[in-house]
């Protein structure tokens, strides 16, 4: 990975005062993170975790209460509003509700940032055509946004965000209003934006699927704080925070919930053990060696960044000391084994 940082947040906090009683709401609490040039960085969190505020700090749509925001070698927080407008032209942004101009055609929407930047008409037309071609909507140039489907609207949004050839793209829940199939199309397009155009992408989402489809690295947010950061595989294969573990369990449904466990208990009298599946575990051989019969009762295995991740729950029957020895052997091999207690 390219070590040059593109976006850097240093100890950023943001507090809003709301309503008549001027009550304070902490949206971000001492957040620090770094996005490298050319990577796709995902921020995942439940709604209200502070993601939207975070992404708006980067192009200066919001100002932090304390802390520093850097984009490249520019400190956004230290710039005048006029200079911030200049920086914004080098940062594209797409939105959950697309935010297209209803009063303009598809081509007019894409041309807007170019007009703002003072690009001449001929050059504008040329670039608009090229962008619409890139997102596959050249034939819809003269249509109005309301004539498009959600996925097409977001593709126009992406074309508009790329109009001034930005080096950074901010995606604010860009697929949350789309169905799974359209989401996949838009994510593929974002992947192309990153790979073919070399644009750094910072995206925020509440869907793990989005992260695991496009992101290289991820930050997990909860209550205005970053719970953990790392490569997508590291964070979701070995979550250290409860919030990350919750996201994985919700997405993979690989570990039995207390209700499922209670149901399993009624029909299975043996010891229930959940084993995390990562790379090769040598499970079958180990159980066999200690004379333990393993019956698969629950589980799920999926892929993250082309590596296996998930867990399997077994009912183990056999001599108790054999089971203990088998589990100890697995643990000695570095396999994550959890015995389900009641």
């Amino acid at each position: 990975m390219n070590p040059v940082s593109h976006v850097r947040l240093k100890n950023v906090s943001k507090t809003f005062t709301r309503g008549r009683d001027r009550s304070r709401v902490v949206a971000l609490d001492d957040v620090s993170l770094e996005v490298a040039k050319g990577e796709v960085f995902g921020v995942i969190g439940h709604s209200g975790a502070g993601k939207s505020t975070l992404i708006r700090l980067i192009n200066g749509l919001e100002a932090p209460t304390t802390g520093e925001v850097w984009v490249g070698d520019q400190q956004i927080t230290a710039l005048s509003e006029k200079d911030r407008r200049g920086v914004r032209r080098d940062i594209g942004m797409i939105f959950q509700q697309f935010n297209l101009f209803r009063s303009r055609t598809v081509a007019g929407n894409v041309a807007y940032p170019l007009k703002v930047a003072g690009v001449g008409r001929a050059e504008r037309d040329r670039r608009v055509a090229r962008l619409l071609d890139f997102v596959g909507l050249l034939d819809r140039a003269h249509d109005h946004p309301e004539q498009l489907s959600g996925g097409q609207k977001q593709r126009v949004g992406i074309a508009r965000a790329l109009a001034n050839e930005p080096s950074l793209l901010l995606a604010d829940e860009a697929t949350s209003a789309l169905d799974p199939k359209t989401t996949a199309e838009v994510l593929t397009l974002l992947g192309r934006v990153n790979k073919e155009l070399g644009v750094t992408i910072l995206l925020i989402t509440h869907e793990l699927d989005v992260i695991r489809t496009v992101a290289d690295r991820v930050a997990v947010m909860e209550s205005g704080r970053i719970a953990e950061t790392g490569t997508v595989y590291d964070v979701f294969a070995n979550p250290r925070s409860t919030v990350a573990a919750d996201f994985v369990r919700d997405a993979l449904r690989d570990r039995p919930s207390p209700e499922v466990l209670a149901r399993l208990r009624r029909t299975h009298t043996g010891r229930l053990v959940t084993v995390a599946v990562r790379s090769r575990t040598g499970l079958a051989k180990t159980f066999l060696a200690y004379g333990v019969a393993a019956d698969l009762v629950f589980g799920g295995v999926s892929e993250l960044q082309e590596r296996a991740v998930g867990s399997l729950t077994f009912e183990l029957t056999g001599p108790d000391d054999g089971i203990d020895a088998a589990l100890a052997a697995l643990r000695a091999d570095g396999v994550d084994v959890t015995e389900e207690s009641d």
């Binding site: 101009f101 807007y112 703002v116």
Partner: peptide
């Protein structure tokens, strides 16, 4: 949101 999109594009 539309105004935000225009702001994000760097418009005055």
């Amino acid at each position: 949101g539309v105004i935000e999109a225009a702001r994000a594009a760097g418009a005055r």
